[in-house]
Design a protein around this nucleic acid. Sequence first.
DNA 1: AATTAGCACTCGTTAAAAGTGAGTGCTAAC
DNA 2: GTTAGCACTCACTTTTAACGAGTGCTAATT
Lengths: 345, 345
Amino acid sequence: MLTDRQLLILRAIVDDYIKTAQPVGSRTLSKRSDVTFSSATIRNEMADLEEMGLIEKPHTSAGRIPSELGYRFYVDHLIRPESISPQEAKALKSLFAHSVNENDRLIRHTADLLSELTHYTTLVLGPKEEGQRLHHLELIPLAEGRVVIVLVTETGHVEHKTLQLAEALSREAASRLMERLNQTLRGTPLSQLRVRLLEEIRRFRSEHSEQTTLLSKALDIVLMDQDNERPLIYLGGKANMFDQPEFQDVAKLRPVLELIEQQEALFDFLSPNLDNQILITIGSENNVDALKDCSVIRAHYSVDGISLGTLALIGPKRMDYNRGINSIIHLLQAFQTELRKNSLD
Amino acid sequence: MLTDRQLLILRAIVDDYIKTAQPVGSRTLSKRSDVTFSSATIRNEMADLEEMGLIEKPHTSAGRIPSELGYRFYVDHLIRPESISPQEAKALKSLFAHSVNENDRLIRHTADLLSELTHYTTLVLGPKEEGQRLHHLELIPLAEGRVVIVLVTETGHVEHKTLQLAEALSREAASRLMERLNQTLRGTPLSQLRVRLLEEIRRFRSEHSEQTTLLSKALDIVLMDQDNERPLIYLGGKANMFDQPEFQDVAKLRPVLELIEQQEALFDFLSPNLDNQILITIGSENNVDALKDCSVIRAHYSVDGISLGTLALIGPKRMDYNRGINSIIHLLQAFQTELRKNSLD
DNA sequence: AATTAGCACTCGTTAAAAGTGAGTGCTAAC
DNA sequence: GTTAGCACTCACTTTTAACGAGTGCTAATT
């Protein structure tokens, strides 16, 4: 185990490096007010810390920087969960001063807020469809066989699709079908919606001998498509990446920005995080080559116990974990409260 | 006026520089098969071209590069509208092989296609609301005073908003009101929709003595909001910027990428282009500091004579104008055809 | 009169050399 | 166990030199 002095030194190194992005030398450390021992002692301790793999030197004659293991240790044991300042707490409350009654916009707004709060890049993974349940379905027949289908989930998420039928669907037929569908399908998880919807239409057809084959086919195609569609990812503060000294080199910056633009890759990366409420992954822990120099702080958001999506913060390994974690926790609270308001039991 | 030989040299310099990104020297040019005169002659001609402001040298002992004026001259007079290759034409046709019946997705798809085709970054400015006309309006009352309003324009654009009323709107009331609104408001330009909609609700209320004050208020707020909302900008191939040698430096890259992320700034920049069908702006011609090292090729798209939005291509000043112009022209055609299919007379 | 060969000159680029200084590891004294 | 002292390392900066692509000018050539 580490001695108190070693803990002090390790924390000092990480804190300093997070602040300055410069390797920290023994002399610099010895000047700190909380350090009562000499630089030589520090050098000895540093040698030990290095042996343990917690810090490393970029080259022989530089100071030390935290290794990934060092960051991990720092995050796990050395972070003081420094509570948010009163003014920040106030600011946070007023952020959602006027409610946003559409989830999409709320999510986008949240992504922007979080990045503004932390000065890091933010990802917000929109609600997963599968888990959500149908609240209401509406068919709107337009001219020329065009039909708009509107789908409202219990979380208050609204979404529309356009179908193109070979022949027009009458307003009456649509209305009758719709009433039936809403009666029988409310509460159906979206993951089962396609199958149950088609089933229900088939049954409706046989009972009322109405011509809904075309509708059924078109719906099938559109919903199939929807199945493949993944929840949206909203990004905030992409430009913040430019401010990080570690990303001044285009070669470093490029893979990160490229990854961020790829919805699929990001989705795969962000989604698995079902156990913990807050998950921090550092450098190679991300298991994504493009993020080997980045750290990610993730938090799950849920409403009424149903996990909906993920809030994430992405920055250099040398990111301000303290601030990041605090910001994400507090924003998460406020965000979930807002989401709750928008849901339709 | 320029002599034929000067034209040849100027074109050669621009072509070469576009291809290699390296200043072009007299010796290099003299080796071209279409150059029959010596490097000394070229040097003399170059001196003249430089005096005219068409080319310049980065420093004394480098070759020449085109000046902005040079690019302008090249674009205006030296581009041969090299018709598209048969295979490319074929590829273009198959791009929209299966129709996308939602304009939003169609636009996004188009942005991606164009960037893939040209290897430049693409911007597609979505349809302006003002000019469009209402095709259909639907009110969907949900639980707890939540009402979804769906708005379909004649261009086939579908869009929904959520209202929150203090008390529930009955399905019957909604249905009656809706029927009335659709009868009277179809064809209304969206720019007038808010005013006329409120008017119509007020009249309906007095005629049927129904309680629609709350609805009217909520609608007002939401539509007001919509007025301020600007059409979306879809981006394609952002990562292509990384490939340009002129943007290897973060300092150069940053302002461009930052601008691209700012919807408002981009909108202001892209929208005014009512006269020409294709507009090319080079470097400082963009009147935007962030784009002083970029060129932009813009094309307007319209359906049934109604101008809807803009397709744009953004790259370094040294961009392949030929390819860019050709790609944008051809894609524009195909894109408009698809849009036409989705419109509802 | 137009073209071209020749040549001195410029200047960015690259490479090597030398100097600087922050930081280290080790040793010996405290 | 702690610390002062010192030789050593090595990235970084500056200096110097060599290189070479390209130019502008002049004089010879067509």
